[in-house]
Design a protein around this nucleic acid. Structure first.
Lengths: 347, 347
DNA sequence: CTGAAAGCGCTTACAG
DNA sequence: CTGAAAGCGCTTACAG
């Protein structure tokens, strides 16, 4: 019933716990023969390494704390997936803490993870968070801290972001290449940097292709289905309406699609539409939505890899924190296909 | 730099670590005055409780191991959300391990969680798993094990499931109440119990309403979009086609919807459609899909609550393991609306 | 290549 | 109500 310890193994082999410990950890100064018998005996006695004891002594827990707003949001589920995958491959485990997008919970989360002696923390800050005092204790303890997707001004730590500017540029350019000539953009609140970046990408793509920027074609929405619908309705009622819409985000695009479907003109297929995020529904709506994929699982993997780097190097000469910027991916579907105008019988 | 320990606090207050430990843990035999000064000093010295040390001594880690196929699947993300929420409220944390639906990984996961001395394990077994030897060690160590969604024949442990039979019954009854009279069912592989249960619910609902069961109207699909499409195509080509379809799962329903849209008759809206699972896309397709919600977050919460019960009671007189069966929820949307036939001008 | 010994930071019966 | 002491199961400098 009682758990087997290294002492039990030592007793069995008439040796000491020190030797058993070294053998199990493949310490270089232990003979191959000893290692073999020790490991065989460990297996026979159904020995399980006790991590609590090990980490109390060594100071390492092989646990990465992951602090996210909510595991229920598919974006974060995907990132966790990537983190855990890499972590596991290096002998680490993932301890999860959800902040529910609340500052108070985030503060408590950092505390909890520190009490658990995590070897590092990978976090995406809550929407409420505007100051970072709670993260300073993490830095003070020299525990690697890596942020993903959402960063915090002033907190100088490694991070993994997606290139929003480029994603928007690609989305817009794709519509241009499809042959659309009046491309509108439904953006989001400009104080949120990702939406500002996406707007810039849109503007620059138009400019790069010698197209005029028309203020009438740029709407500022609220990142919801309803807002996307309202913005699109207004766009369609312009004296000179757009022939394509790039929405800053998939739910906005979905709303825009609803507006298009409800309008007399254009019909879906006569107006190009691109979203951003590659949400779970994007592939299945009608028409399926062309969008920008954010490589969410890869984001987690990269964050975990930065952690591995940091914890292996230990205290390297203070390099500036690594900032990884992931390439967005254009996912081409039906909503951005430009229908060739039917040949009119012109003599 | 070095972390504050209870010894530091003790030295500061000219008392002992034992007293400090007791004070911090609100031990009943410590005076209120002592508790107060100890806690104040702990705060002042920025003391952080060291869980590794605590659990090495006490045997409790306040960690629940969660073993799931993949955090990337939204169903599991939701369940984790529910588990972590309850866990946190009781001072527990969640250690995550993904099995990637593979037996080998699941075995390794159980090992890892045991090495981490988790106080309990909440798991959904991988699709590959057909035997449960790896879980026996968990039982042998008297660590609470709770399964959710997917159970394993013969492993007699507490579990949280959803009432698939009832969900299917509700879905079918809903179509009947809408006025549909020839209701087809696209099921899944019958060796998977959830699909078998859903088929039974369908059959019994028809019977309960005095409707005939027509073998032609029951298809056995493969739980994919394509399979749903193919099955629906065949149903629509019957000499006497159905006027409604209950699909055993949302992706199947989505495929069926595609088939309906591509057929000349019926148009969407002329044929009722209900799915099962309330996937992320279900609300956003056209028409929006009526479906059965599985209360995923609640499933996690209930599993966590069972754990709390088990770990508080300790070794109660051996009651049979608790089996919770959650009520499915009908989510009524557009796809099941029965259009009133337009009044023909009959003299 | 192996052993003896100390100690990581707590908790907890035992005494008083 | 508080203290002295042992010990949870490991790891690791130090010695040989």
């Amino acid at each position: 019933m009682a758990r087997t310890t290294i002492h039990d193994i030592a007793k069995e082999l008439h040796t000491t716990a020190a030797t058993v410990s070294r053998a199990l950890n493949d310490h270089p100064s232990i003979s191959a023969a000893t290692k073999e018998t020790v490991k065989a005996t460990a297996l026979r006695l159904n020995y399980q390494h006790n991590r609590a004891a090990s980490s109390l002594r060594s100071g390492k827990t092989y646990v990465i704390g992951v602090l996210i707003p909510s595991a229920e949001v598919s974006f974060f589920g995907s990132v966790i997936h990537g983190i855990e995958k890499i972590a596991k491959s290096q002998g680490y485990n993932v301890l999860l803490f959800q902040t529910n997008e609340q500052y108070e919970d985030e503060v408590q989360g950092v505390q909890t993870l520190l009490q658990s002696n995590v070897d590092g923390i990978i976090a995406s800050i809550s929407k409420e968070t505007i100051q970072y005092d709670h993260f300073l204790e993490v830095k003070r303890r020299d525990i690697p801290l890596i942020l993903f997707d959402r960063s915090l001004e002033g907190l100088d730590v490694p991070s993994v972001m997606i290139n929003d500017y480029k994603g928007a540029f690609m989305a817009t350019e794709h519509l241009i290449e499809q042959g659309f000539t009046r491309i509108a953009h439904i953006s989001g609140p400009q104080h949120i940097s990702i939406f500002h970046e996406r707007l810039k990408g849109y503007v620059d793509a138009l400019a790069a292709h010698g197209m005029k920027i028309d203020g009438d074609l740029i709407m500022y929405g609220k990142v919801t289905i309803d807002s996307g619908r309202t913005c699109a309705e207004q766009l369609l009622q312009l004296p000179s309406p757009p022939d394509a819409i790039f929405a800053a985000e998939d739910f906005t695009a979905l709303g825009a699609l609803q507006a298009i479907k409800e309008s007399k003109w254009p019909k879906p297929g006569q107006i190009g539409l691109v979203g951003f995020a590659n949400e779970a529904f994007s592939a299945y709506i009608t028409p399926s939505l062309t969008t920008i994929d954010q490589q969410t699982a890869l984001m987690g993997e990269e964050a975990a890899k930065i952690f591995m780097d940091l914890s292996q190097k230990g205290k390297k000469p203070d390099l500036p924190p690594q900032k990884i910027v992931l390439e967005p991916l254009l996912v081409q579907r039906e909503s951005s296909i430009k229908r060739k105008p039917k040949k009119k019988s012109i003599p």
